[in-house]
């Protein structure tokens, strides 16, 4: 991006900046009155206590994830994205604030949540074959064998890995390994799918394929997806909404509605005018975040 460019033709709809959207659309992050948000993060704060002193990774985060939404979370490196996901998924207790799922406080990993980690090489069981990896959570749930086999085959089919059920994960390429992890999450049939920079370590072509795969699965299953990334293009291409985090200690910098058409296409969408505008806007905000600009009213607005 050059520093000189035309102003966006449409205003970018920002929830933290603008409370009422000019064209009357409902801001995505806010739930309709009376409707329970699926997942809700309230005043979340996380401080790590280390030998070298306290590290405040997340200062104050508040947002809702409505049912069936695909939201992307972008933020500079070290802004506490992984920390946030670990708190949401119940792997770690927040220092202050809380996470609720269907109004219930999350104290441990909830049944209806699945997480796809960035380190695919370390999140698949190297002693289990591909199909066994996908099958294990189901086995643990006590699903019977024939049902399991069917669900596993379906999930592998969905990620395009029907041909390698008997391979070990480490025999596959990085992109294929991440597909296995996605298949495992899909087979688990979660209500909320959390993904922590799942494609950061795969090559560009594979990454584009995997992005389309995630959108496809999201549409098919109707799950709520919280997708963490540090890639601005990816966040705009994938999400219906982009939540921009400030640099550490983290608050929400901005909450942007992505009003791109539901059908997205790597070539067409990415070359559209609106994509460029949104991308530009998110990029600008991230640059601001990196420079240390902190939206002083973000907390107040998010709480409003």
């Amino acid at each position: 991006m050059t520093s000189e460019h035309s102003q966006p033709t449409n205003p970018v709809i920002s929830q933290s900046g603008v409370q009422d959207t000019p064209d009357g659309r409902i801001p995505v992050g806010k739930t309709m009155p009376g409707e329970e948000p699926m997942l809700s993060v309230q005043n979340l704060k996380k401080v790590y206590h280390t030998d070298g002193g306290d590290i405040e990774a997340v200062r104050n985060l508040t947002f809702d994830l409505p049912k069936g939404q695909l939201a992307c979370l972008v933020g500079p490196s070290g802004s506490g994205k992984t920390t946030l996901l670990k708190c949401i998924s119940g792997l770690m207790a927040p220092t202050e604030g809380e996470v609720t799922l269907h109004g219930e406080k999350v104290t441990g990993p909830p049944k209806s949540m699945a997480v796809v980690f960035q380190e695919y090489g370390r999140s698949l069981f190297p002693w289990l074959r591909v199909a066994e990896n996908v099958e294990l959570p189901l086995k643990n749930q006590g699903m019977d064998k024939t049902a399991r086999r069917e669900v596993v085959a379906e999930a592998l089919e969905a990620v395009g890995l029907s041909h390698v059920p008997k391979s070990y994960p480490w025999q596959l390429s990085g992109g294929m390994q991440q597909r296995v992890a996605i298949a495992r999450a899909v087979a688990y049939k979660p209500e909320v799918l959390l993904m922590d920079e799942p494609f950061a370590a795969v090559d560009a072509q594979t990454r584009a394929d995997l992005e389309d795969l995630v959108r496809g699965i999201w549409k098919k299953l109707g799950v709520s997806v919280l997708f963490v990334t540090h890639d601005i293009d990816e966040s705009v291409y994938l999400g219906e909404r982009v939540i921009i985090l400030s640099s550490s200690p983290t608050v929400i910098q901005e909450d942007v509605l992505v009003d791109l058409p539901a059908e997205r296409d790597q070539l067409e969408t990415r070359s559209s005018q609106r994509f460029a505008e949104l991308r530009h806007h998110v990029y600008e905000q991230i640059q601001l975040a990196k420079k240390g600009f902190r939206p002083e009213d973000a907390v107040a607005n998010a709480n409003a």
Binding site: A114, S123, N140
Partner: peptide, 20 residues
Amino acid sequence: EVLADTSRTYGMNKINSVRY
């Protein structure tokens, strides 16, 4: 750690954790 976290998020019970 990632593998342990993965197992926890899938709610692996004690016996299965030991076994798998």
